[in-house]
Nucleic acid binder design. Structure first.
Lengths: 516, 516
DNA sequence: GTTTTATGAATGAACG
DNA sequence: CGTTCATTCATAAAAC
């Protein structure tokens, strides 16, 4: 699984082989996922879905080969929503660099590999086109055939040419116009989603403006950029926005609906612009969301550490590009804030509710958090890593952003002996805090872990995905670093303003370390 | 037309084909032969090969033109083997003059045009590269997720496949020998073949020497050149050994040279079946690479928390916005890491080296890991969260995947009092560990945090993005959960096999909790 | 349990 | 060379 998944996957055949041994394993993993939760309970696991172990076979005769397990990826509804949102926002075929990002986002909901993402877009685009084509065709004569064979590129080509634009292009329009919306775009997607998804909720909807939402005002402003599919640059932008937003999509629970007012509140003014389609809900530019959370912050934890730093962190995420956006704002909010929303199409709306929820929760929680007093510890260098939650929505109110953490832990941790243990290795730790509230927090929350480099002990606590007052939390000498680079191996210092506060909010999903 | 040709444009026109023409190429008569059977079912084979004559004719209607369909070339297994062998031997991109020769060899097994050959190499190379990239990079998905990209096809993303690096350069002329064996494997191509084809059969066996044969004397002479890992079957095996699975990349160490005997062995017996692979440690599919890193990990931190369980994990991932560009690069960091490169051609070689490195490392490392003894702790429920790093690369050898952790911490952590604190909120903690090694880990590394539900304390440590032996690490009663759901709030049990090991490798970027 | 459909995966062919 | 398109294969999920 893992990510890459692949492993399995893809390669399918290729190798395969071997392992067979275990048979099945397969994957599944996710499975779990799937259904979610709820149910879950446990059971699940088991099985797998995918799992088939199948055959594997043994050998047979000669050979065997296993069949390999390679379970094929089964996107979960949430993942599909995200993908659709992205697709609808115009990023029909994400550039290579975006893929990993997208994958990361998806990963919150289940294992997925870059390849899966890649394939998804390829297939989605292709099928969208075909569909379109066919429909179109109908009219014309050709019709059928088209599908059938399209000539491909090569030769004939003819057909292709035709293509109107499948969506993509237009996306914009699409969005705009409600009309079709459903159609195309959705179409397939929707289909699937609904279909597969299952239950789903959303199916229905109209799709409205999805993209718009996502994009937000920005988009509105510069439509051109956004729209299109082409990956091109613009797209990226979008993506970023979207991404940021990300949250967008999914989250919402369906059932919920926000009133206009609510929405407005949430968005705050901001986004309101929104153009259209979207109507109400949507909103958010990504940025906004984040902003909301920020304010809060608080401080928190302390850690001790010493030693060196090796952090190894996983990187998480890297962040991306930015797009720019930026945004941010502050938000307001709090309470309100929470919002993230966005979501996809309609679904979005629904979703909102939850978010709100979350927010609330978060808020509550916040107080709880205490600042880390820090165990002063005697440690030398301490590292704190913060990871924003993936899932998240947005930002959360973040209530806090002080690091939320638990002192206890910290202290305890610090206290622990540990010792120099493993020399080279550094033990970095990150803690995730959850709130009972469940998770609400998650969203904006980030886990922060402080590790004593010497002992290797770390303290973890939650931190909001907001700006963090590094100085206040960790002292004058503290340095906040973020895992970046390709694999997250690189550590980049995070800029802070004069007051010692980060210039920007911590990014969800990214890992941060505080060097004390 | 023929196949090729046509248009040709691109590629050099040169080739163009000739033969092709006939539509049906088919050629096949033999085809039949081929493989067929074996494989299975065949799907593939069967059919087609190109078979289909179909169309072409068609015409039909009146219309037009027939498009002629030019059926796309469907390489037969034998052909694929040959091609793979050549590719693996280092002829990544055959000079023009070689093309016809290669084609001729291929022709024994079915119609094929120069263009087809040309395209095949182009695609193969490209895809190989991508895959590599992905692996390297992040994720993977493959896959892909890693992978970034994936495999797949195309571009970007993709990447799926994996591949080994051909060796490169040497292009020789391999052709010479006719032999060819059947064998082989697989490789990617094989994949396909097998894959699609299904089951193929072939694989096995005979495989023998495939490469060898192919290469012929030359090869024999210079094993080193050829050997290589690549993908081919042999490679796989090997790889597996090494990596475990992941095949991927390229594992071979570069510098390494196989003796003829070794080669023979490998190939010959086909891969000997070495089954091995798994071997001990790692398994992981995730990528071998990771494996490397894995080991490292370290432990880490402990935390304390208290309260209930709410875990809130932050997910990781997301991240976005930011900035920019991505690019990456450079960094390099890691030592190991470096890899990425791979790159193409030459680079490849280099890459290999690195890989080798990694591998080695991994192996070595593996042992190191100790199981957590677990602090048994008196704690009640303990949660451990593991997050795979996003960034990651691949997988790492995972060496470990035992959690690497620090016992100290754990114990310490558990020991801590904590208390029931805040009711609702749970303090979840996640630790990120980094290793000094830097990061190497990252890639495959995941941070694992164990929290005592009662006390709220947590311990964090790095874990490879590989399969985790939950039982061994945490005891019989331990339950591994992954944060899933829409916002990551849901916790889903992660399936484990009978031995208590996760069926699949932990996903990078995802958060896991261990409930003790 | 079998058939169909939807769609993930893979790869040949081409374009730029 | 990287990307994109078209196709095809295989299979998970639905529909019957």
């Amino acid at each position: 699984m893992a990510s890459s998944s692949f492993n399995n996957s893809h390669w399918p055949s290729m190798f395969r082989s071997k392992h067979a041994a275990e048979p099945c394993q397969t994957t599944q993993p996710d499975i779990s996922s799937s259904p979610p939760s709820l149910l879950s309970a446990g059971g699940a696991s088991t099985t797998t879905t995918t799992g088939r172990c199948l055959k594997h076979s043994i050998s047979v005769g000669g050979e065997e080969r296993a069949p390999d397990p390679k379970p094929r990826w089964n996107p979960r509804p949430e993942q599909i929503r995200i993908l659709e949102a992205i697709f609808n926002s115009g990023m029909v075929n994400p550039p290579r660099d975006e893929i990993p990002r997208i994958r990361m986002r998806l990963q919150q909901y289940g294992q997925v590999g870059d390849a899966n993402v890649f394939y998804w877009f390829q297939n989605r685009k292709s099928r969208s086109k075909n569909k379109l084509r066919s429909s179109t065709a109908g009219t014309g004569r050709l019709g059928l055939q088209g599908l059938a064979r399209a000539p491909g590129r090569g030769a004939a080509a003819a057909p292709p040419p035709v293509e109107p634009p499948p969506l993509v292009q237009n996306q914009f329009h699409m969005l705009a116009s409600p009309a079709q919306a459903p159609t195309s775009s959705s179409s397939s997607s929707s289909d699937r989603s609904s279909g597969s998804s299952k239950p789903a909720a959303e199916p229905a909807m109209p799709a409205t403006a999805a993209p718009m939402d996502l994009l937000g005002p920005l988009a509105a402003a510069c439509p051109q950029m956004y729209y299109q599919g082409s990956p091109v640059a613009p797209a990226h932008k979008v993506l970023d926005l979207v991404a940021s937003v990300e949250p967008v999509f999914q989250p919402w629970p369906q059932g919920y609906c926000l009133s206009a007012a609510e929405v407005a509140t949430i968005l705050g003014g901001q986004y309101m612009h929104v153009p259209v389609q979207q109507q109400p809900p949507a909103p958010l530019p990504a940025g906004a969301l984040l902003g909301l959370c920020n304010d809060v912050t608080e401080p928190t934890a302390v850690v001790t550490g010493h030693k060196t730093c090796a952090w190894g962190p996983a990187g998480l995420g890297q962040s991306w590009p930015c797009g720019g956006a930026d945004h941010h704002q502050p938000g307001k909010n709090n309470n309100t804030a929470a919002r993230e929303l966005a979501h996809e199409d309609d679904a979005t709306k629904l979703g909102l509710l939850q978010y709100g929820f979350g927010a609330t929760t978060a808020m509550e929680a916040a107080p709880a958090v205490a600042p880390l007093a820090a165990s002063p510890a005697g440690g030398a260098v301490t590292m704190a890593s913060v990871s924003a939650s993936t899932a998240g929505l947005t930002g959360f109110p973040a209530s806090t952003n002080g690091v939320v953490a638990n002192y206890d832990l910290l202290q305890a941790g610090l206290a622990v002996p540990g010792g120099g243990a493993g020399a080279g290795r550094a033990p970095a730790a990150v803690a995730v805090a959850a709130d009972a509230a469940p998770t609400a927090a998650q969203e904006g929350v980030v886990a922060l872990c402080i590790t004593d480099s010497i002992t290797g002990k770390s303290v973890a606590h939650n931190v909001a995905a907001a700006r963090l007052d590094v100085r206040a939390q960790f002292g004058e000498a503290a340095v906040l670093l973020r895992c970046g680079g390709e694999r997250g191996l690189d550590l980049e210092p995070v800029p802070v303003d004069a007051s010692g506060c980060t210039v920007e909010p911590l990014q969800r999903g990214a890992f941060y370390y505080v060097l004390l």
